[in-house]
Amino acid sequence: MSTPVTTVEALPVSPPVATRVRGRALWQRRLRALGASRPAAIGLSIILAWVVLAVLAPLVAPYRPNANDLAALAHTTPSKAHWLGTDHLGRDLLSRILWGARPVLVIAPLAVLGAAALGSLLGLAAGYYGRWIGIVITRACDIVLSFPVIILYMIILAHFGSSAWNIIGVLTLTKAPIIARIVRGMTLDLREREYVTAAKMRGESSLYIMLVEILPNARGPLVVDMCLRTGYNVIIIGALGFLGIGLPPPDPDWGGMVKDTYGMMMVWPHMALVPCAAISSLVVGFNLLAVGLRELGLRD
């Protein structure tokens, strides 16, 4: 038997990656990439601005958030002493807005992280195992999802009272099914990939396959969705405050500020307008970032 002739000398190799920028930290490169999309850049700037202001609130806020300036009550509209004016109790609006950014910027992302963790696990299990585990998880998620969110909050918060932790808990529980649904959909697709089969064939555990082989490839849509969810969480936190079942007073809460003052709109519209503008800008920031991330994701 003649030996097979080997003609393997001509094996081409791709040129080295030219796009790699040396000497830069990963996050710097990521940030640079974000700049390629204008919506992402604008959105991120808005969010970062609010984060900075919230962190620095004790330093930059001109007044204590709950301090009443009774002298200002005669003249609540914007002035040199109170740049954005005061509310009906004579509290400086600028200071209250700055302090009010803090709870929102903690609660909304925390709840999203919780929902992402819980939802990813549920979605991975539902998508990877299929069969009855998948059916049970999917049905349970459907039930939670079918319940109108705001009514669910009302019921739960009315019973357990309102606190930051309760809001985080409720937001986590109600957003997790949405994340789970997304991750399940991606898992159903990704588990059929050949690299998953290859992992099985070398004897990887199911947990490894789900967490190391599948989840990282679902991160694109997941990050976009987490961004959107953070925006929606800000809206819901505001709405809860507006309905009077949000964070307990007197600490400033953007939604609660609107609730207290929108009845006086005919006289002092600025009192409601200022917190409304604040909350809207923050949500716009998150949603623009989501639009930009999706754009960038599609481009690659």
Binding site: M1, S2, P4, V5, T6, T7, A10, L11, P12, V13, S14, P15
Partner: peptide, 15 residues
């Protein structure tokens, strides 16, 4: 494969 081996083209298409 025994008597008429394939001859690949050297290198690869440049970008």
């Amino acid at each position: 494969k025994r008597d008429s081996p394939l001859v690949p083209i050297a290198g690869q298409v440049e970008p």
